[in-house]
Design a protein around this nucleic acid. Structure first.
Length: 563
RNA sequence: UGGGGUGUGGCCAAGCGGUUAAGGCACCGGAUUUUGAUUCCGGCAUUCGAAGGUUCGAAUCCUUCCACCCCAGCCA
């Protein structure tokens, strides 16, 4: 099922580092901030980091980059851990940047003592003015040349809680005229009187990302620190910090004094979806979707609930590749990945979403029979099952047309179709209600056509699925479509206006074959001729089945008929 | 207009001076089929952002130009 490991530029770099002896093994890390749920974009990073370690014989840590107490929580940590495990990856160590707070603090002191960091008291507004612009250099803060001893004293007092939020910051002393704005004396620490979900109230100063990340990598002995393109400018600072602190050999692991190397890759965006955390929050908060795990969302919890398998997501990530440019991926690539997996693994079953009763008038009343059918058309190992058949059955309304076009192979007045695995039936009467809506079909069956036979050799092109009315199991089936009408909703001013009003379609009266009742709640199915389905992990119950359509089958008829 | 990046078919993406420019998705044929599914076979870039140049030979090297993305949070 899984494809051969595709090569990409980061894999080449890592392999080369191994080949020339720079590293004995590679060590990566997946470093999310626990401030939200993971989405498909994270899956790319997870597959890259964990996959590279798996592939080249190395290790990968799961590290929570939790340096901003205001946004983070244990709920997110747990969800992220759970999702990484669900995808099938194992981390070497489970790490938290917050576990490094004390060491980080000591490194900050070292920079201060070396005259490479200073405490500043510029207000945020002043800070912005002093920073300069993209084309103009910044200027030095009046506090930049404070003596080291005074900086140390001030920084210790910052930690001790003597100052208000925003009053003081610790900044690296680099170059206010650097063409790279990241290097214009970046802030290393800020004062924040916020409760940290892990560190509690032990700290009132918190290290910034740029200071924390590189040191965390070094402490863990990471060899290749992979991140997205927008951090390219930050790499210079990453290297500067590591070059200016004293890392004892034992802290950088078995690779001696080699520093971790940051390598950036491009993000992948899926068409018709949103990845922006802010916008996702709005969708959830305003009730446009039903929670973070809404099956229309490309959060990993959403995809999971929708029925996507870990394998399909890993295959998808392998398929889109890893390059240095941001990519826009068509939805069909994701759909192909899940269809490919489920085609091979999903048990076949009959399900009618939109039932239309069909009465076989020449079939004896009160009688029934069962057909033994294959659970998979090609995989014999998946076995067989029994499906009951009787005088009254349900077929899908889509499989009948009052006035069908010539190429429509299904049922219509006077037409004959085969009931899959059963008999051929011919439609003689169409019963309509007062509004002219078709509510029932009267047909006759040909007893000689059992089991796919046609003794007279006539060709029956149309084959439809069905469920015995007397044995049918009721279910609610939810069918999903793209959440947005436009390929790039994130680019619009008002993305909410672009929501597809038909993104969720509920079939409250679906009729399923009885074997579904005994199925594993985790199982995935193909409703023959319709699509792939799974039980809804939240709303499904023994007394009320609720199923989700993961993805439809390819439908060349729908394409032809221009639906 | 400062700095950092990227440009290969509709969407991804291999390619690293000599290949008929991989592969996947999509699309278009056609075969098989008790799922209009699957599978199978065939088609789909004389051309690699553009223009020059180097070379026997360039998507790959050089020059210039063009387009797009990122950076001025006490977010990550």
């Amino acid at each position: 099922m899984s494809k051969p490991t595709p090569n990409h530029f980061i894999r080449s770099i890592a392999k080369n580092d191994l080949a020339n002896g720079k590293h004995d093994y590679i060590y990566t890390r997946f470093p999310p901030e626990p401030n939200g749920y993971l989405h498909l974009g994270h899956a790319k990073s997870i597959c890259l980091n964990f996959g590279l370690a798996e592939d080249l014989g190395g290790k990968c840590n799961l590290r929570f980059d939790d340096t901003n107490p205001e946004k983070e929580s244990m709920e997110f940590v747990e969800s992220i851990r759970d999702t990484v495990e669900w995808l099938g990856f194992e981390w070497d160590q489970l790490c938290f940047a917050s576990d490094y707070y004390e060491r980080l603090y000591q490194f900050a002191l070292e920079l201060i003592d070396k005259g490479l960091a200073y405490v500043d008291e510029l207000t945020p507004e002043e800070m912005r003015e002093y920073r300069g612009t993209l084309t103009e250099p910044g200027k030095n803060s009046p506090h930049r040349d404070r003596p080291a001893a005074e900086n140390r004293d001030l920084f210790e007092r910052m930690r001790a809680g003597e100052f208000k939020e925003g009053e003081y910051t610790l900044r690296a002393k680099i170059d206010m005229a650097s063409p790279n704005i990241v290097m214009r004396d970046p802030i290393l620490y800020r004062v924040r009187y916020a409760h940290h979900y892990r560190a509690g109230d032990a700290w009132c100063i918190y290290p910034m990302y740029d200071f924390t990340h590189c040191i965390s990598d070094a402490l863990e002995g990471i060899t290749h620190s992979l991140c997205t393109l927008e951090f390219q400018d930050n790499r210079e600072l990453y290297d500067w910090i590591l070059a200016n602190i004293t890392l004892e050999e034992n802290l950088v692991g078995e690779r001696g004094k080699l520093m971790p190397k940051q390598i950036e890759f491009g993000r992948s965006n899926l068409e018709y979806t949103l990845a922006s955390k802010r916008k996702l929050i709005q969708l959830v908060k305003d009730g446009h979707v039903n929670g973070w795990d809404d099956p229309r969302l490309t959060t990993l919890v959403g995809l999971r609930r929708r029925g996507y398998t870990p394998q399909s997501i890993r295959d998808f990530c392998a398929e889109i590749g890893v390059t240095k440019k941001d990519a826009t991926i068509e939805m069909t690539v994701l759909e192909n990945a899940i269809r490919h997996d489920l085609e091979a693994t999903a048990k076949r079953v009959f399900g009618v979403l939109n039932p239309l009763k069909l009465v076989i008038t020449n079939y004896p009343e009160g009688e029934s029979e069962t057909f033994t059918v294959k659970n998979h058309p090609k995989d014999e190992s998946m076995g067989t099952r029994e499906i009951p058949f009787g005088r009254e059955i349900y077929i899908d309304q889509d499989d009948f047309m009052l006035d069908p076009p010539a190429k429509f192979f299904r049922l219509g007045p006077g037409r004959e179709v085969r009931l899959r695995y059963g008999y051929a039936v011919t439609c003689n009467d169409v019963i309509t209600d007062d509004d002219g809506k078709v509510i029932e079909l009267h047909c006759t069956y040909d007893p000689l056509t059992a089991k796919g036979q046609t003794p007279d050799g006539r060709k029956i092109k149309g084959i439809i699925h069905w469920v015995s009315a007397a044995h049918a199991v009721d279910a609610e089936v939810r069918v999903y479509d793209r959440l947005f009408k436009e390929p790039n909703p994130g680019a619009a001013d008002d993305f909410v206006a672009l929501i597809n009003p038909e993104s969720l379609q509920v079939f409250p009266d679906a009729k399923l074959e009885p074997s579904i009742k005994d199925a594993d709640p985790e199982a995935r199915f193909q409703f023959e001729r319709v699509g792939y389905f799974c039980f809804d992990a939240v709303d499904n119950a023994a007394d009320k089945l609720v199923m989700n359509r993961t993805v439809s089958l390819r439908d060349t008829w729908a394409k032809q008929s221009g639906k």
